[in-house]
């Protein structure tokens, strides 16, 4: 028997890894990939809750999160390509247009 808190711990650990990646990577594409990691950890959390609560709501929510993640990846990567076209760089320290 796998206890629910094990799933929750794995998911929390994965979320924190994603947060670390998002805060520290230079490359914007890798920041988006870290967001994907965080979304996956939330999905795991919801699926585990849903399984142990014997309710399908969590898994339905996972389904919608995957749809939104697909849309987010399409838009985010479109922004990255536009950014590269205008700045010739995908690094956070080079994009300083808003800095006074």
């Amino acid at each position: 028997m796998v206890h629910l808190s094990w799933y929750l711990t794995v998911s929390a650990l994965l979320f924190c890894i994603g947060v670390f990646g998002f805060l520290t990577r230079r490359n914007i594409i890798m920041m988006l990939l870290s967001i994907e990691l965080m979304l996956n950890s939330v999905n795991l959390n919801l699926a585990a809750m849903s399984h142990y609560m014997e309710d399908l709501r969590g898994q339905v929510l996972v389904f919608f999160i995957i749809a939104v993640a697909a849309a987010e990846a399409a838009i985010g990567l479109g922004i990255v390509v536009t950014l590269f076209r205008n700045h010739r760089s995908v690094y956070t320290e080079d994009i300083t247009t808003l800095k006074g």
Partner: peptide
């Protein structure tokens, strides 16, 4: 977890 650490 291991792959996550490696990825970031």
């Amino acid at each position: 977890i291991g792959l996550g650490l490696r990825i970031v």
